[in-house]
């Protein structure tokens, strides 16, 4: 399922559980797959100096980010025996408790998907120019930094 051109990874707003469920459903026709693994990033209601995060507003350098997502995808296919792989990331406002990142990998065998998923998620966090603004309940904000 490799593609040559960078796809658009971004979706406006939260990634719904319907969308995630439907993605799983779509793979039931691909019967060479024996194992899926899924990572879901959820917006956490961190409390910072007594103020609670109510949402994260995501922006990105979209062209560069899509290019980086594509490079991560290509290197994951090179490193691991994957049947398919999908990445979706939110842009705009995602409320606490909602999903902002969905990574889905599939392979004939289980060991591969555990390793591949960790590799992909860590690369996304480190290499893609996506920026999260943490919005507090009082509408003040601070910029998130990945640890």
């Amino acid at each position: 399922m490799q593609s040559k051109k960078p796809k658009n990874v971004f979706q406006q707003g939260a990634i719904s559980s319907d969308f995630i469920g439907n993605s799983i459903f779509k793979h039931q026709t691909k019967t060479s797959i024996g194992a899926h693994n899924i990572f879901l990033g959820q917006v956490r209601a961190d409390v910072i100096d007594g103020k609670t995060v109510s949402a994260i507003e995501y922006t990105a350098y979209e062209d560069m980010a899509n290019k980086k997502f594509h490079e991560i995808r290509e290197s994951a296919f090179e490193k691991f025996d994957l049947t398919c792989m999908h990445i979706y990331h939110s842009l705009g406002t995602v409320k606490a408790g909602e999903i902002c990142l969905f990574v889905f990998v599939s392979s004939p065998r289980r060991k591969v998907v555990f390793e591949a998923l960790e590799f992909i998620v860590e690369a996304i966090k480190a290499e893609t120019p996506v920026f999260g603004k943490e919005i507090f309940e009082d509408e003040s904000h601070q910029w998130k930094i990945n640890s």
């Binding site: 990105a60 560069m64 996304i124 996506v130 999260g132 910029w143």
Partner: peptide
Amino acid sequence: NQELISNTTKVTGAEIALLPPFSGG
């Protein structure tokens, strides 16, 4: 041109972007 560069890189006239710490996911 959508690749990270250092202070000693020559400016070529391609698109430049200033990127704060990444915080996707």
